[in-house]
């Protein structure tokens, strides 16, 4: 005897009540928490009720999704970062912007009196706001008194390198290199000897900022004089 046939015989109000009672068991059914008897009752109802089958289908993806969280995560909620993080990020971005402006001013002021020759390559219009990273500092210089800083400026087309270095050993010529993470090397500028062995050079490379692993200064024979790497600080 089919359940459809049974239903025709019962009072519609009872049927509606029974239907609702079954429906409210679909949650515990899909989570596998019903007794065998109750499970059977639900399954018999499902055989004859398209609406409940659809409802069940809508719930069926939930158990495996729920399994992605641990009990602790389910009870206490996802573990997010501490509340002060947003303020810290705003402060950092603000500070970057101030630094951008200060450095640009210093750069403009210094441009007239550059002690060294300048290799300045610009293919892109300047209107885009560049991204400045003062992330590099000298590491392991060949000769102890070499000090300086290289700043990387990110552009759509590549990277500008601003180098200030003091105490270079005397050479006929110097070469500035940008070295990519994958090992590619591009010459970013050259200059000749200076009277005080200091240099301020602006160079450029097509290697994108995020791909620049380090900046090197070599002599014309390729001997590395100084290496500038991202500061670990």
């Amino acid at each position: 005897m089919s359940t459809e046939h049974d239903r025709d015989d019962v009072d519609p109000l009872d049927a509606a009540r029974g239907h609702r009672q079954i429906r409210e068991q679909l949650g515990t059914y899909v989570l596998g928490a019903l007794d065998p008897d109750e499970r059977l009752e639900v399954e018999q109802h499902l055989d004859g009720c398209t609406a409940c089958r659809d409802e069940l289908a809508g719930l069926s993806s939930l158990p495996s999704l729920l399994d992605r969280l641990t009990v602790e995560e389910a009870v206490a909620g996802p573990q997010g970062p501490p509340a002060g993080l947003l303020d810290d990020v705003v402060v950092r971005i603000d500070r970057h912007r101030h630094a951008d402006r200060r450095l640009l001013r210093a750069w403009q002021g210094a441009a007239a009196g550059l002690a060294a020759a300048v290799a300045l390559v610009l293919w892109a219009p300047w209107q885009a706001q560049p991204e400045l990273d003062a992330l590099v500092a000298p590491s392991q210089p060949i000769a102890a008194p070499i000090v300086g800083e290289a700043q990387l400026l990110a552009w759509e087309w590549g990277t500008t390198v601003r180098l200030e270095v003091r105490g270079l050993p005397e050479r006929d010529a110097y070469v500035l290199w940008a070295v990519a993470l994958d090992g590619r090397r591009q010459q970013a500028g050259t200059w000749g000897p200076t009277s005080d062995n200091n240099a301020r050079v602006i160079g450029a490379s097509a290697i994108l900022r995020d791909a620049v692993a380090r900046v090197e200064v070599t002599d014309s024979a390729g001997a590395v004089l100084a290496v500038f790497e991202p500061d670990a600080g």
Binding site: T28, L31, A33, L34, D35, E38, P63, L66, L69, T70, V71, A74, V75
Partner: peptide, 18 residues
């Protein structure tokens, strides 16, 4: 609602136990 789901799904309790 959350409590019921946690007990039944995450702690694996039956309806009766919960």
């Amino acid at each position: 609602h959350r409590e019921a789901i946690v007990e039944v799904h995450y702690r694996g309790r039956t309806v009766r136990e919960t």
